[in-house]
Design a protein around this nucleic acid. Structure first.
Length: 560
RNA sequence: UGGGGCGUCGCCAAGCGGUAAGGCACCGGAUUUUGAUUCCGGCAUUCCCAGGUUCGAUCCCUGGCGCCCCAGCCA
């Protein structure tokens, strides 16, 4: 746990209260939770909430948390997803140890239990088509009707079900159903489907099976097999709970798990559904599942967010049962809080414009010490080079300053961070009238502090880099993928809310030379610009590519 | 509309009958060679509404209102 997490408030929540009581009353001597993703896509920030809850609870109460692949539908699942999910959970900082499970490892037991239900007269093979089943199910306000196959004899059910398993029937021709109550006000109890026929290879068990259990028939029983004490899922499964319990009540399961539900995470300015994320990838709107603008954990990782920051975010938002919309700025703030502590500082000029210091000798180079962190002397100093020609950021110069602008202006002066005070004496233009370079003069006595020789205090401090020492780099500035706080809202196509400026690529930025030799993993604060890290895929030693992880807080542009 | 759930500051969220924690955001002010950080101060006489019980209610009761989920051989 890093300092950001130690200082983060850990709100009490209803799950902790429940577990507290279960432990106190002796109902359980220790707890077992599980994170059960279906391997049908990449994990996103919403899954991070679930991971932090499940693994976090196990950690806090001295229990354990399993990673379980809920792989009951081979039509949608792939090995690629299994691998990426394991990677993301580890990246987030959690470890399942020996406890890696697959729902599909229990297929034989589940099959036996289905046979058991048939023998008990509590399940039957259905010959109705999908459309007919739907028609018989009734509606929200009208009860359903019994299927004509509901009273099929046990022996016939047994025979048919074993032949379903043997692969004798085509997909969709028959299903196994539980015999519960076609008139139940809870629709999930109206003879739910238990097994369907799918002739497709499975990423974990290959072609061993032609029939696959539904989520409802697999989840609770798998929980029971693994000895899960607290089965924590999102709110939309709440109406399945009576069914979850019906199976546990009617099957000889080895333990009795309980299901609890919490509100899933909604984040502003993004979309979270797997379908939409997949579409963004397929349409080429983003470069892939790990595009730094994506809310996937792969994207967040590539962007440069730290696992500690994501964990702190999950702690901060808490766990409740009311539908919530968290502002992305909350996540971004967690990233800043973490990086502010740990990131060494550096200077980088993103939109370079040359400043020639006319009264500085052309053949001179000064080595200046620069603190790696303003509040942490233990992080040491580095050497930066001062020369006659330097790069400054175009945004730090205005010929005619706007109100409140206290950077460089013609005739005005500014402090060069860790260097001297310079005064701008003039502007050189080309034939078109665009500014080619700036000229100025420095005050040799002004290296320390921000006061001029006559005691005045300069208002602005800007970053810069020696033109003779700088290295060039590509810098990618990311912004929110959508320009609307809730692109998912209403019936409108979420794609119309795409932010056209979600990525800006700057090609010839000027960086301190040391950055070309830095560890590719190191996250820097480019002073006054934000936090940056090399892109793990595209950055090479001789063609540097930096990603902006997040901006600094900026009272100035906010005010404008 | 049948069933289930939820409604405390702009966004989250504690609170469990004794007189509204905390975080983020926001607004002041101090320190600062990052318009960053840090610091200090401000920020719900009120808990969806209306009745009721009680010495006392955000917490209990009744009745409204609003929002979310369920009619996949998805999870």
């Amino acid at each position: 746990m890093t300092s950001i997490e130690q200082t983060a408030p850990t709100a009490n929540n209803f799950l902790k209260s429940i577990i507290d009581e279960d432990l106190k009353s002796g109902k359980h001597s220790s707890i077992v939770t599980r994170f059960p993703p279906e391997p049908n896509g990449y994990l996103h920030i919403g899954h991070a909430k679930s991971i932090c809850i499940n693994f976090g609870l196990a950690r806090d109460f001295g229990g354990r948390c399993h990673l379980r692949f809920d792989d009951t539908n081979p039509a949608k699942e792939e090995l690629e997803y299994i691998e990426s999910i394991k990677e993301s959970v580890h990246w987030l900082g959690f470890d399942w140890g020996e406890h890696l499970y697959y729902a599909s490892d229990n297929f034989e037991q589940l099959y036996l239990w289905a046979v058991y239900l048939i023998e008990q007269g509590k399940a039957y093979v259905e010959d109705l088509s999908g459309d007919e089943i739907r028609a018989y199910r009734g509606t929200l306000t009208e009860p359903g009707k019994d299927s004509p196959y509901r009273s099929r004899p046990v022996e016939e059910n047994l025979d048919l079900f074993s032949r379903m398993r043997a692969g004798e029937f085509p997909d969709g021709s028959r299903v196994l159903r539980a015999k519960i109550d076609m008139a139940s006000p809870n629709i999930s109890l109206r003879d739910p489907v238990l097994y369907r026929i799918i002739h497709a290879p499975h990423p974990h068990v290959g072609d061993a099976w032609k029939i696959y259990p539904m989520y409802d028939f697999a989840h609770g029983q798998t929980d029971a097999i693994e000895g899960i004490t607290h089965s924590i899922c999102t709110l939309e499964f709440e109406s399945h709970k009576p069914l979850y319990e019906w199976f546990l009540d009617n099957l000889p399961v080895p333990s009795r798990p309980r299901q609890y539900e919490f509100a899933r995470l909604n984040l502003t300015f993004t979309v979270m559904s797997k379908r939409k994320l997949q579409e963004l990838v397929q349409l080429g709107i983003v470069s892939g599942w790990d595009d730094p603008r994506m809310p996937t954990l792969a994207g967040i990782k590539r962007r440069g967010y730290t696992p500690a920051a994501v964990r702190a975010f999950c702690d901060q938002i808490g766990v409740g049962r009311s539908d919530s919309w968290i502002d992305v700025s909350c996540l971004e703030e967690c990233v800043r809080t973490d990086l502010n502590e740990s990131a060494p500082r550096a200077m980088a000029v993103l939109r370079p414009i040359k400043l020639v210091i006319d009264n500085y000798p052309a053949d001179r180079t000064e080595e200046l010490p620069a603190a790696n962190h303003p509040q942490k002397p233990e992080m040491g100093n580095r050497t930066i080079y001062f020369t006659r020609e330097i790069w400054i950021d175009a945004d730090d110069f205005m010929e005619v300053p706007s109100k409140g602008f206290h950077r460089l202006t013609v005739g005005g002066e500014v402090k060069l961070r860790f260097g001297y005070i310079v005064k701008c004496t003039g502007v050189v233009r080309d034939e078109q009238g665009t500014i080619q370079e700036l000229h100025g003069e420095y005050d040799p006595a002004s290296r320390e502090g921000i006061h001029t020789a006559d005691g005045r205090k300069v208002k602005g401090v800007i970053h810069w880099v020696s033109a003779t020492h700088a290295v060039s780099a590509e810098v990618r500035l990311f912004d929110r993928l959508f320009s609307d706080p809730n692109p998912d809202r209403g019936a409108a196509d979420y794609k119309q809310f795409l932010n056209p400026g979600s990525i800006e690529t700057l090609s010839d930025c000027k960086l301190e030379a040391d950055l070309s030799r830095s560890n590719i993993e190191t996250r820097y604060q480019f002073e006054r610009m934000g936090y940056f890290r090399q892109d793990p895929k595209d950055s090479l030693p001789d063609t540097l590519v930096f990603n902006r992880i997040v901006t600094l807080r900026d009272a100035w542009t906010n005010k404008k």
